[in-house]
């Protein structure tokens, strides 16, 4: 079934809220157990890599990988993520494209403003492609693909700031 845009928007906004408010367990719960989280790398000036088994991605993770990212943050032992910057996700232009391979395809545009005292503010942006699936717990994220438009990246890229 294909969802109304409002249902998809609720889920995407909730994900942004969880990340910006550092509610990590709630954030992880938005993903299905078989979730795939993928930020392809750039290939040339206009393209992105498209085969995670043959090309390098910026991030390509299953749910265990996402949980490990939270473990890393909460351990307070990573120089890059302690102290953790403030983030503000702006998620907009949400569109539902119908169903494919049992998932509801949703796209959106994002900008994240990150602020850390040590390096000040920065803004990055790009596009999201989601595959959403209805579960017993409600609508959940089965796939998320993040196109990060920024090159010559300043500061770390991690799940909390894209």
């Amino acid at each position: 079934m294909t969802y109304e845009r409002s249902a998809a928007e609720d889920l995407l906004y909730r994900e942004a809220w969880c990340l910006d408010n550092k509610c990590w367990e709630d954030w992880l719960a938005l993903y299905t157990e078989d979730a795939v989280y993928w930020a392809p790398a750039m290939d040339g000036d206009e393209g992105w890599t498209d085969d995670p088994d043959k090309d390098v991605s910026l991030m390509y993770m299953d749910k265990a990988g996402l949980e490990a990212r939270i473990f890393r943050i909460e351990g307070h032992d990573s120089y890059a993520t302690d102290p953790l910057p403030h983030t503000a996700h702006l998620v907009t232009n949400v569109l539902v494209h119908g169903e494919q391979d049992g998932l509801t395809r949703v796209t959106a545009t994002w900008m994240v403003r990150t602020y850390a005292r040590v390096r000040g503010g920065s803004v990055r942006g790009g596009l999201y492609e989601y595959g959403l699936r209805e579960t017993a717990d409600g609508l959940r994220i089965a796939t998320k693909k993040i196109f990060i438009h920024d090159d010559r990246i300043v500061g770390p890229i991690d799940v909390y700031n894209v």
Binding site: K54, S57, L58, Y60, R69, S78, G155, P156
Partner: peptide
């Protein structure tokens, strides 16, 4: 590739810590 992504990229679990150091 997976081990490369784990360590060598600015989105990895290692390079950001090096850069900060």
């Amino acid at each position: 590739i997976r081990k490369y992504e784990d360590f060598f990229f600015p989105a990895s679990l290692a390079v950001p810590d090096d850069v900060r150091a």
